[in-house]
Design a protein around this nucleic acid. Structure first.
Length: 264
DNA sequence: ATGGTTGGGGTCCAA
């Protein structure tokens, strides 16, 4: 069975409802994982997605900030989420569909100053990634069939950013974050499903700042959005795609959809 | 070294 999974930080699901529907039409994923929906669970607009054929949905949202959702053509069972960092933030959804456990994450951005001693947001980000590593290490094994997607807010590889040297002190690409993300990856043998198809020496971005005068011209991007799979699904990987054009859509998100196709 | 933009909720915080 073909399974297409897309992840997208939508930066307000209500403001960009038409763009979500456009992605569903143009990419036609079986499952769309959203981050930063910025709406309470109870106020999530279900009807347009029901009408678009996405009859199975999980929503974990809060007022104003964060929030994650999963829209699916396939039925699933909702799994539990730990209370990450005991913050009560809506940053994670887990579902089980077709024998696969799918995790949708929105990792804290981490603020501006890359020092956990003076920046509580950066400390939170580091703790969050540590907790992810600990949780998967304690509760799951590499032999479990799992997919992990989301805005991890870390660009781990040299060519996941426009300038490795210039971003070494910029939150999202600092050595301590990259080390923690890599440790999380290794603990459960996660395979980077996008880099599985794209060599590490090739630039790859999923986010461009709103602050650039011309995001396409300056092209100072970062790859913050990821899709990982555990080893049992590695041979099922078929292709990847990053919908860069979506960054240029009118009133678009600063992130673009990242997609992986599997044959499961 | 600095500023640049966006969204949500409300006259500022997070990204």
């Amino acid at each position: 069975m073909a399974l297409r999974v897309t992840t997208w930080n939508i930066n307000s699901v209500r403001l960009r409802q038409d763009l979500v529907l456009r992605v569903l039409r143009e990419l036609d994923p079986d499952v769309l994982c959203l981050q930063e929906i910025k709406v309470e669970t109870e106020l999530f607009p279900h009807d347009p997605y029901e009408a678009a054929g996405y009859g199975h949905r999980a929503v974990f949202g809060q007022k104003g900030y964060h929030g994650v959702a999963i829209l699916s053509k396939l039925p699933f069972e909702r799994g539990d989420s730990p209370n990450w960092c005991e913050k009560g933030d809506c940053r994670h959804l887990a579902v089980r569909l077709d024998g696969i456990e799918l995790h949708n994450f929105y990792v804290p951005s981490g603020g501006d100053v890359p020092d956990p001693a003076v920046n509580e947001k950066f400390a939170h980000k580091l703790s969050f990634v540590d907790e992810m590593e600990t949780w998967f290490g304690a509760n799951r094994t590499p032999s479990d069939r799992m997919i992990l997607v989301g805005d991890l807010n870390i660009a781990p590889l040299e060519h996941d950013v426009w300038s490795h040297r210039q971003l070494l002190d910029v939150v999202s690409h600092t050595p301590i974050e990259v080390e923690k993300l890599t440790r999380l990856q290794r603990r459960t043998d996660w395979v980077d499903a996008v880099r599985h198809f794209v060599p590490a020496d090739q630039k790859l971005y999923s986010w461009w700042s709103y602050r650039a005068r011309d995001w396409r011209l300056s092209n100072r991007g970062r790859r913050l959005d990821h899709i990982w799979v555990t080893p049992p699904l590695k041979d099922a990987l078929r292709t990847q795609s990053i919908l860069t054009d979506a960054r240029g859509w009118e009133r678009g998100s600063d992130h673009v959809p990242v997609t992986v196709d599997l044959a499961v």
